[in-house]
Design a binder for these strands. Sequence first.
RNA 1: GCGGAAGUAGCUCAUCUGGCAGAGCAUCAGUUUCCCAAACUGAAGGCAGCGGGUUCAAGUCCCGUCUUCCGCUCCA
Length: 482
Amino acid sequence: MSSTQDNRFQAIIAHAKEYGFVFPSSEIYDGLSAVYDYGPYGSELKKNIRDYWWKSMTQLRENIVGIDAAIFMHPTTWKASGHVDNFNDPMIDNKDSKKRYRVDHLIEGFADKLKAEGNDKEANDLLAEMESLLEKEDYASLKKLIDDHKIVCSISETCNWTDIRQFNLMFSTQIGSVAGEAETIYLRPETAQGIFVNFLNVQKTSRMKIPFGIAQTGKAFRNEIVARQFIFRMREFEQMEMQFFIRPGTQKEWYEYWKEERMKWHLSLGISQEKYQFHNHTKLAHYADAALDIEYEFPIGFKEVEGIHSRTDYDLTQHQKYSNKKLTYFDTEINQHYIPYVIETSIGLDRMFLLILSHSYNEETITKEDGTKDSRIVLNIPEKLAPVKLAVLPLIKKDGLPEIARILINECKPHFKCFYEEKDTIGKRYRRQDAIGTPYCVTIDHQTKENNTVTIRYRDTMKQERISISEINNKLKASVIL
RNA sequence: GCGGAAGUAGCUCAUCUGGCAGAGCAUCAGUUUCCCAAACUGAAGGCAGCGGGUUCAAGUCCCGUCUUCCGCUCCA
């Protein structure tokens, strides 16, 4: 990371706080690590991004419907999904090198070495014992196993290890008000399972035929070992997911379809294509037969914003197995029962928010009419997503100009977010609107009283034009509404 | 979790080898202002991250602690 990029990232974080987009959580108590709150403009922007996604996925597509599943789910859900077994990794640290290892990776690495030396039997015995101890969560014996085999850290070459500790991906809490009778449940680490467990409810009640999709936005929670980089990686975050149910055997073509569709969505916001790239996963998760990320070039480098996963029939099969409920679909076209395959599109709302900020934040040097230089900080937010669409500014706060401004505001505010201000000079007010990304400013002056025209000023170009006050509402409705 | 750096007004920073905590910008009120961070007047804003120690005296020196940033470890 270059220092220029680093400075730009710091500047964006500072700007986000300064102008009410994102605050550190519980800041008066020194904050809570990797948790953030969205302020007045931030919550508007976030909502607009969510709405833009929701509309493009559900309203504009007849074969996708939405749901809003609870964050709490039956604990067996996470057994079935694999989260309990696959993401509770025991970890161990080497005290000399300070390196941290996953215990299974460490032992497997040692077993590989034994095999390379021809000690296949010893290696297999070791792996078998490890599996059995992992199953029993017997960390003391696992530690002993590492000590007995004199497994060393590849950096420090020592076996000076800490005790084994467990890393829990999922947050847990208790359901039930009576102490002692409470049952441990988890805060969902992904929203997808709420879709899978409701698959038949949704399919039947909305009479959907395959292929069809179920969309959902909502909070998810993950314990991260390192949670940093502002809102890029948070413990509490919001996902926008869509699971698309398809006939087995057609997953390749639908995977390609959604890869293209999702990229089109990103580009529809007017963000340049060069900032995006696909990244194919070579190492696949336990549920996927193909996976890729849509990455964006953040100030901290190319990072994942969205994932497209071909999840096979893994999830529904698992839920069928654990629930003993049939989760098959009857395909009338081919007269067959089957468990559908699934293509998942999963985008992080908070990451998309950071993407928009990264794209929008610009420090410009401008040349004024008299030739002198000036600078401004402007958020070139795609206007459909901007927190405030229109600022109405009486040039001075008397002579009836505020009253005219109020009439215009009252006409516009049922349709889109408006902002009124009569304080300070017009230049200062323009700059304040630039800083929060308001695409249009309308100024009421004395000429307005004579011929009902106003000045409309454009954020990106700073150009102004004179138009009839009666055109404002329709002009903006045509361009700022999602 | 480990290593390094940093915490003073909303923001950016001063306060020299320990001696009454300051400036610019921003905020608020008023006057003035007809198009790109204007001027004037006034106001508000702080337990110097927090806790302890040394000292006549600590923002400043020492110890602890918390938080943030940078680099590692993990990442479906």
